[in-house]
């Protein structure tokens, strides 16, 4: 969060806003201390029902989306590190992403990092019936957990994980609400290893120029 505050201070005069959304089933109770400590002047929101992840088909955190002045997506879901706190694990340097973000804040959709519609469509996750059902199973699990029925919630969290195996959110959030080894027979780090390590967990953002002549309409 301090990283977002720093980049916001740097770019806010370019008609630029940051909206961060905490994906925490326990809402402000879990996310609040982090927000309070960061003293954000950007917009820090709480999404205790994972609504943004659901609407945008996001599978991990931090996930960033760029939205232009007209409310149009110009970069789709991607790993969005704005500082190097997790670099040891992720292997990702935040500088290229930050440079791209600054370039877009200054130049708007003329930035080489703003993607053409064609390229965006290639990268967009299509919301198929399994993904939609996974979100419903997860939402049911969250409701049951919050109404004091953790035992009954677990099979629904498992079903969400099965239907949308790409979602790390469904795994990590569920593990955080109980004892992962006892209830799911695994741990977060075991799952990351199974998937192929931190590179699979945090795929680096594609920062190749998006505005090649072939790509952009005159």
């Amino acid at each position: 969060m301090p990283g977002w505050q720093a980049i916001y201070e740097r770019l806010k005069d370019h008609n630029f806003e940051i909206a961060s959304v905490a994906q925490d089933t326990n809402g402000g109770k879990d996310a609040g201390p982090w927000i309070t400590a960061a003293h954000p002047t950007y917009t820090a929101l709480i999404g205790e029902k994972h609504l943004v992840s659901k609407l945008y088909n996001m599978v991990n955190v931090p996930t960033g989306v760029w939205i232009d002045e007209h409310g149009k997506i110009v970069r789709p879901n991607e790993v969005a590190f704005v500082d190097d706190r997790f670099k040891n694990f992720s292997g990702l340097d935040s500088a290229p992403y930050l440079n791209a973000l600054a370039d877009w804040a200054e130049k708007g959709n003329q930035s080489i990092y703003a993607m053409s519609e064609e390229r965006l469509r290639e990268k967009l996750t299509v919301n198929n019936p399994d993904i939609a059902l996974a979100a419903a199973e997860f939402g049911l699990g969250e409701h049951l957990y919050k109404s004091g029925h953790l035992t009954e919630a677990i099979p629904h969290f498992k079903e969400a994980q099965r239907l949308n195996p790409k979602s790390w959110n469904y795994k990590r959030q569920a593990y955080a609400l109980s004892d992962a080894m006892r209830d799911y027979g695994t741990t977060f780090m075991d799952e990351v290893e199974k998937a192929g390590g931190s590179k699979a967990y945090y795929p680096p953002p594609d920062l190749s120029p998006a505005g090649s002549p072939r790509d952009k309409k005159p």
Binding site: M1, W4, H14, N15, F16, E17, I18, A19, S20, V21, A22, Q23, D24, G28, D30, A31, G32, P33, W34, I35, T36, T43, A44, L45, I46, G47, V52, S53, Y56, M58, V61, P62, T63, G64, V65, W66, I67, D68, E69, H70, G71, A80, L101, W104, A105, G108, N169, R172, Q173, Y175, A176
Partner: peptide, 24 residues
């Protein structure tokens, strides 16, 4: 955190980085 509601559409006319995170 203060309970005030915000919509994404409130930011129309600005460039927005929408970013998710979690405490877990």
């Amino acid at each position: 955190m203060s309970g005030r509601l915000h919509s994404l559409s409130d930011f129309r006319g600005k460039k927005v980085l929408l970013v998710t995170w979690a405490s877990w």
